[in-house]
Write a protein that binds this DNA or RNA. Structure first.
Ligand code: NAD
Ligand code: NAD
Lengths: 208, 208
DNA sequence: GAGATATCGATATCATAATATCGATTAAAA
DNA sequence: TTTTAATCGATATTATGATATCGATATCTC
């Protein structure tokens, strides 16, 4: 198995580099341009770029923009299309199903599951099933990724079902730190923390 | 101005400690309990707790659960209620307006703005105005926080309007790294990066 | 009451990420 | 053609965060 050579921090900056470079029209782009535009350190930018692209930069020019865009898209996995199911089709789940941008990011949501659905319903082009059918359908669809948007009380139980059904990657929007076996990866989308940072700043003026 | 004594990493773990402790009924809870339940290192847990609470733990007992819950809620700012506006009431924006849990986290969304709204409309209890009215209404409402859920192409322009209207804290869901003056804080909710991490894991098995 | 031990808090170490420095190089300017 | 300066890549340094170690101590057991 191939090993990733870049860190998660680098990965988190890549979408911003990409967006900036796609909004330009020049032949080249320098690490300084990027650093200034995005408020980052220019050494950091060069290291990030070196981590995802073998293309060298040239003195007084910078990097060729187009090949770099290709390499970043490659590193971000935009080439491959992943399929995912979503469990918990409430407010947030519905929004995510409706979000067009995921296709562009290489994600297709192929099915939803919800406790409160009796028969199959449709949210735009996506079928949503009763959660009873989860354990049967997931293996049949051969999907390995799940988006978890049930209320926090049920998150661990649903997580266990997902793992049993063969899910290997979980995007967790609930407020629970999920317990999973080693071969399953969880990524938390932690909105409470984000909010706390902003709120604290407004009340104390403290940034960090 | 009071200085925060804990890091953002600590802050990000606090919601999970809180959820775990609120789900217990014992008198005390030890750092080992928390560490095991959440898959963390117990020294790290103790340091986090020490950073937000002056209550000492006791040998063979751990920490008193209830006072600790109070201190964490305090650190997370659940006591104070912040008001925010939301700009871009599309799929995601509507979901966020409808999300009940924000109240519990100390956030009230008092108004929305969208380009495509002519007159005032209502999403549940929240009025949504034409974005023309943003520059007038925000100062009148005296709101300092904004949630930014417009499409990425318009994000910087809207951001500039928000700053001009007096906004000091921006929760940014777009794919753009916003350019703001020093006295404005931005928190990015970077879904593309999350997705990239999961996708990469599935295709390479690499975790880190 | 006398150990035994779980747990803490303080401190030391280790790991990782960010930033600074600097010589090499290449394009542009003189 | 020579000089200048922008930019890179490599390496060194610094900063930050995570983990390991260990002595102190309060509670539990006998
Ligand atoms: N909506 C947001 O903006 C937002 C923001 C931050 C966090 N969250 C988190 O996202 C999660 C969902 O939030 P929401 O606002 O969409 O809540 P919601 O109540 O609208 O939706 C939850 C859905 O999950 C379904 N569900 C519950 N148990 C289930 C099970 N066992 N199997 C299948 N489906 C099940 C429910 O029927 C419901 O439709 C929560 O954990 C919340 O904390 C949401
Ligand atoms: N929906 C998701 O699940 C999701 C996930 C990841 C990222 N995002 C990001 O969130 C943002 C919104 O996504 P969405 O799916 O809700 O898109 P959307 O198109 O449904 O909503 C965008 C809304 O912004 C409004 N708008 C545009 N320009 C405006 C302006 N100048 N002033 C006021 N309103 C304006 C539009 O009228 C529209 O209603 C995008 O930047 C997207 O990349 C969304």
């Amino acid at each position: 198995m191939e090993i990733r050579s870049f860190t998660i921090q680098t990965l988190e900056r890549l979408p911003y580099y990409l967006h900036y470079m796609e909004s330009r029209e020049t032949e080249d782009v320098s690490s300084r341009d990027l650093a200034n535009a995005l408020g980052l350190n220019e050494v950091q930018v060069r290291k990030d770029l070196a981590a995802v692209s073998s293309k060298a930069g040239r003195p007084r020019r910078g990097f060729e923009r187009k090949p770099l865009i290709r390499d970043i898209r490659e590193a971000l996995g935009f080439g491959r299309m992943d399929e995912a199911v979503i469990v918990g089709v409430g407010h947030l789940g519905t929004a995510l199903i409706n979000y067009k941008g995921f296709r562009e990011l290489g994600l297709r949501i192929v099915a939803g599951f919800d406790l409160q659905v009796e028969d199959e319903i449709w949210v735009n082009e996506t079928p949503v099933f009763s959660s009873d059918r989860l354990k049967n359908l997931i293996p049949r669809l051969n999907v390995k990724m799940a988006i978890l948007t049930v209320n926090s009380e049920n998150a661990q139980a649903v997580c266990d079902e997902l793992v049993a059904a063969g899910i290997r990657a979980i995007w967790n929007f609930s407020q629970v730190m999920l317990n999973v076996p080693d071969n399953v990866i969880v990524r938390n989308e932690n909105m409470a923390a984000s909010l706390a940072v902003l709120s604290e700043y407004l009340s104390t003026g403290n940034n960090k």
